[in-house]
């Protein structure tokens, strides 16, 4: 089991390096068209061939990984902060505040996020810039994904508020802010970190879902999801199996995340 873990860490480290060095590793820009050679086979010039518009697939894969794997952790950070604030408030105050926050959490949990996401994406105008579309997509993922984490944080904060050392601190006159900073945050750090790591693969998959439906990141900007759109003409997969590489990359990265998560034991 340890070997699997080492492999997973190696894969993630390699991915991180690839993302950082995408600018140097990619032979061409992600939007640069080689109009003389569309739909080319793999060669020394184009490692994975070119797509229908003559863009280098290898470069697009590198830049797509950069978009997905940089923005998903950012969205995860956002959602963890949101979950920490709402869950912390619910657990700290209790009573009516907790009931209100729980109601909000239940509401967010029962709304089908995929339907909501495509609704909001449909509100955006058609000629929205790629940068705006990618920001909106990941901001939405962060805004919608916090409910399950908030429930965990709320339970944790509630337990802490009942524990003896918090009673002791309150009895000796700790103010609210100091209590949160000295006792609640350090003790909740483990579950907050766990929620952060759990959210990353979830967001990568969610973006891939949206991208494969054509409702994620707008062209010409690539992402792991929008690269999957090429798989839709299944007839071409047998003569050109290198088209499957984005899918393979997605599966390997998500599996690595899951292997590391399983080992962390803090999974809730």
């Amino acid at each position: 089991m340890k070997a699997v873990r080492v492999v997973a860490i190696a894969v993630l480290a390699l991915t991180a390096l690839t993302i950082l060095g995408a600018h140097y590793l990619a032979p061409a820009g992600y939007e640069q068209q080689f109009r003389e050679t569309p739909q080319a086979s793999p060669s020394i010039h184009h490692l994975l061939g070119t797509d229908d518009l003559g863009r280098d697939r290898w470069s697009r894969l590198l830049y797509g990984m950069r978009v997905s794997l940089v923005l998903a952790p950012l969205a995860a950070l956002f959602t963890t902060v949101l979950a920490g604030v709402v869950g912390g408030i619910a657990g700290y105050f209790g009573g009516w505040t907790e009931r209100g926050c729980k109601l909000l959490i239940d509401l967010f949990l029962s709304v089908p996020w995929l339907f909501l996401l495509i609704t909001v994406r449909a509100v955006l105008p058609l000629n929205v810039s790629p940068e705006a579309s990618v920001t909106v997509t990941f901001a939405l993922l962060g805004l919608l994904g916090w409910a399950a984490s908030a429930r965990v944080i709320c339970a944790g904060a509630k337990d802490l508020m009942k524990s003896e050392f918090v009673w002791m601190a309150r009895a000796s006159g700790f103010s609210g802010f100091k209590l949160i900073r000295l006792h609640l945050l350090p003790n909740l750090r483990g579950s907050l970190l766990a929620q952060f790591w759990i959210s990353i693969p979830v967001f990568i998959i969610a973006e891939a879902n949206l991208g494969a439906l054509g409702l994620g990141v707008a062209e010409p900007l690539p992402s792991l999801g929008s690269l999957l759109r090429e798989l839709q003409d299944a007839v071409m997969l047998r003569p050109e199996p290198w088209r499957l590489l984005p899918l393979a990359v997605l599966i390997v990265v998500i599996s690595s995340f899951q292997v590391l998560l399983n080992k962390q034991e803090v999974r809730t």
């Binding site: 495509i118 609704t119 994406r121 449909a122 509100v123 058609l126 439906l213 054509g214 409702l215």
Partner: peptide, 11 residues
């Protein structure tokens, strides 16, 4: 249906 509605901007 939802997908088609999203593409047709049928809010």
């Amino acid at each position: 249906l939802a997908w088609h509605a999203a593409q047709a901007r049928d809010l």
